[in-house]
């Protein structure tokens, strides 16, 4: 960390941290590549992705370009406490403009997957997973009155009204990594 002068905010010196964690470097890149960010290593830091990223616009710390740089330098611990990857709207503007086919969106989501393994997952995401498993829908199951009001049956023709389909979905979920992680109860 660079010592701040008076009135100057602390600057995170990425290279300095990277020096410290050099041995971690290869490992982090391999982890995120494993989790779907295969083309991460082709990034040339041109910044096209940052120019179109809604997260960069509103001031999130680890927006796409900076996140990729940090990963290539081997940083991991610094990222785990930060909410940025969980704020990504998956809009894929970055994927569309990337001249190196890095797909920065995949990097954001690979970091989410890495964070999940470390249990650095927001409560809301857990609630969404729980609702998906319980009902097959990742929303609060309100709105039944609203459905009636607009002339629709109380339940849509989904897992919400089809026991076998919900059972099938649960079988699928139980055979995925979600079950291994043990983030939500999946007993029934």
């Amino acid at each position: 960390m660079i010592e701040p002068e008076e009135g100057v905010p602390t600057v995170l010196n990425l290279s300095e941290i990277a020096e410290r964690e050099k041995e971690e470097e290869e490992k982090v890149v391999e982890i995120v590549r494993e989790f779907g960010a295969e083309n991460l290593i082709y990034c040339m830091q041109c910044g096209s992705c940052a120019a179109v990223c809604p997260l960069a616009r509103v001031g999130f710390e680890w927006y796409n370009k900076k996140l990729i740089k940090a990963l290539l330098l081997g940083l991991k611990e610094e990222l785990l406490d930060d909410p940025t990857p969980w704020a990504c709207v998956a809009c894929n503007r970055c994927t569309e403009v990337c001249p190196r086919l890095v797909s920065p969106f995949e990097v954001m989501f690979a970091v989410r997957r890495m964070m999940v393994e470390e249990f650095a997952i927001p409560t809301l995401a857990i609630e969404g997973l729980r609702a998906l498993y319980e009902y097959g829908h990742a929303v609060y199951m309100t709105g039944r009155e609203a459905r009636k009001k607009v002339g629709l049956p109380e339940k849509p023709p989904s897992t919400d009204s089809d026991e076998q389909a919900l059972k099938d979905l649960k079988t699928i979920l139980k055979n995925t990594k979600l079950a291994e992680l043990g983030l939500i109860p999946m007993n029934d």
């Binding site: 995401a125 998906l132 829908h137 919900l166 979905l169 699928i172 979920l173 995925t176 992680l181």
Partner: peptide, 27 residues
């Protein structure tokens, strides 16, 4: 499409694992 479910949306399976995401979508 009787028995359809969540697609799955971004904050759920896509954030957990790619195969898990694709499996729910594929159903």
């Amino acid at each position: 499409l009787k028995g359809q479910s969540c697609c799955p949306t971004w904050g759920t399976m896509p954030s957990i694992d790619i195969v898990a995401w694709c499996a729910v979508a594929a159903r």
